[in-house]
Design a protein around this nucleic acid. Structure first.
Lengths: 67, 67
DNA sequence: ACAAAATGTCAAGTATATATTACAAAAATA
DNA sequence: TATTTTTGTAATATATACTTGACATTTTGT
């Protein structure tokens, strides 16, 4: 399941996947995989992403997926 | 930095580390390490923990730590 | 239409989240 | 106090998050 809220929040800041990746210090492929729903990022990475995008965990990652 | 909110929420449900670990399907040591702040769990594990404890990501994990 | 930028995706490698086993120490309870 | 439960903490092993590099496709801008 894609993370469209993340994609939308990134678009709202006019950042490319690569821009966001650089801002949080990961590779572009990692951001791509998270948006695509391919894997399960660590909470610290999620928190970094939230800070860059001006959102909270609940806004971007809550209730997205079950384990 | 310890996650005292997690510890408190767990205590509020009267669960041991082992109880919570079983409820979310990880080892007791993993729960212990998360509460102790030793490492950086995945978001899906955080979400599972939140569900068991009746909290949201923001309540238990937001603003805890920087990357 | 063309060029450039952004995105999707693959393969192979590295770092680290998590498991398992085990034992000691602390806390709860009788 | 004695006993049980819970917690803290190692060591070694495995699964997977994340990297790097590369290329194809799609989208955006001129």
């Amino acid at each position: 399941m894609k993370n469209l809220r993340l994609k939308a929040a990134r678009a709202g800041k006019d950042l490319s996947q690569d821009d966001l990746a650089k801002a949080v210090g990961v590779s572009r492929q990692t951001i791509n995989a998270i948006e695509k729903g391919d894997y399960n990022p660590t909470i610290n990475l999620c928190i970094s992403i939230c800070h860059v995008l001006g959102k909270t965990l609940d806004e971007l990652f809550w209730d997205e997926v079950e384990v």
